[in-house]
Write a protein that binds this DNA or RNA. Structure first.
Lengths: 249, 249
DNA sequence: TAGACCCATATTGCACACAATCCAGCGGAC
DNA sequence: GTCCGCTGGATTGTGTGCAATATGGGTCTA
């Protein structure tokens, strides 16, 4: 119809959406909704109304529906027959379990990467590490923007390692497992010390991969992710809150 | 429109479809297509034409489309934009990797189950083991039917263990990971000795879960699955065949 | 003969309309 | 007062039509 933009759309989530990449309808909807969930605009337990989202994005319900189903397949939202979909709610145990699962999958990826990584793979990892370091040092930026840069570089490091594992299915599982517990990332707040430590672990892991030390690489990655888990638990879920699990009933 | 049955529909796949359970459109399509893939009626590389499947099942393209997307999310088929979907092709390395992944995930499930299983969980496992044994002893059945029974009991055992892990996300990942490499199950042919061994391992694993021995349960499960892998490799992919990877280009 | 272009056709992508279902709020009966 | 059933609105499920896109074969040219 009209090409008029309502101000929403791809621009509404600057995170994982490649800028300027013309996306097909379902993908646009997918990225947008996922962004809304990750950045907290859609909170756990909130319903996803196809019609409303479609209107927001200037699409019909069909591609929106498809996007919602993709998110449901990933586990980011739960859908029930004839009752629509809502953002998944997580209790403390779910968060613990999700991180443990991610730690195991991603340390397996490290193990594989240590045997399979090519020079190009290592370069990709190095690039991510470099960007991470750069972002760390840009203290003149406003926190939100700096956090976004760090987050992006962090993803790049992890994605590069996963890519080096040459295990398509594992990569697929991880792509959904990584964000699932980050429904809270809006609340996330890493201390400088913790960020430095992440940077260090990235480098250590990278070196173990380069040196063909599958087990040590895997163990470092496991520890790295569990540290992330502890932080989330400490800062977002300090005790045993129903914070996350509201809106359920 | 008319309620006339053309003789296809739910009846066309007797395998995984619960008989008599009235399923909604997408689920019917999902089960049917999945069944066709697993039993070999749809071969790796073959295209999934929405229109044709819809006609076969007396549905419109919409629910079929949704089912195809579900299968794509699971990784059983691959879909490309504007080019439709086809049954996934796997080379030898993919099969190796998939089994290793499944072994790790499912041994993790065992580990959790050993700490978390309730009496009911154990009963469910026992029931599966019992059915497995029963099916083993029914040598009067024709091989296909007996294999179906064994297969079903086997699934029950594994599903019960995964259920006992109380890790919803893990269960979800496994539900797709388990069948992925079984695109070959049409060709599968277990020897009596191997089936007895599987039965034994099920029991051993069950006992370790009951005795709260997470590590031993996990290691037995890992070994159990890797044995399955070796069998598939030996019987279906004896050397380095392109068997599986035809139709790709 | 080899290669590039073009068009016919098969198939998917998307929008829209209608049917089926669910849920909340209300009124009546016990 | 509480419980039950009903009804209206909101939302999802599904069928269908048309537009957009890929694919394969045929023809024309060098």
């Amino acid at each position: 119809m009209s090409t008029a933009k309502t101000g929403v759309g791809a621009a509404s989530y600057g995170g994982g959406v490649l800028p300027g990449a013309r996306m097909s309808g379902p993908m646009l909807a997918y990225s947008s909704i996922r962004g809304w969930i990750v950045d907290g605009r859609l909170r756990p337990g909130e319903r996803l109304i196809e019609q409303r989202i479609a209107a927001e994005l200037n699409l019909s319900r069909t591609p929106v529906r498809e996007a919602v189903r993709m998110l449901a397949a990933e586990g980011l939202v739960v859908a029930e027959h004839n009752r629509g979909a809502m953002v998944r709610t997580l209790d403390r145990q779910d968060v613990l379990d999700s991180y443990e699962l991610r730690a195991r999958l991603e340390s397996y990826a490290c193990e594989l990467a240590a045997s399979r990584a090519t020079a190009d793979d290592l370069s990709a990892i190095d690039e991510g590490i470099r960007d991470f370091g750069k972002a760390l040092r840009r203290k003149e930026l406003e926190p939100v923007e700096r956090t976004r840069l760090i987050d992006e570089a962090n993803r790049q490091v992890h994605a590069a390692i996963i890519g080096a594992s040459r295990h398509a299915r594992l990569a697929h599982l991880l792509s959904s497992a990584v964000d699932a517990p980050l429904v809270f990332s809006a609340l996330r707040d890493f201390s400088p010390r913790q960020l430095e430590r992440s940077n260090l672990f990235h480098q250590l892991i990278r070196d173990m991969i380069a040196k063909n030390e599958p087990l040590r690489a895997a163990q470092l990655m496991h520890e790295h992710i569990m540290m992330g888990r502890d932080q989330i638990l400490a800062s977002v879920l300090p005790e045993d809150p129903e914070l996350v699990n509201d809106g359920v009933d």
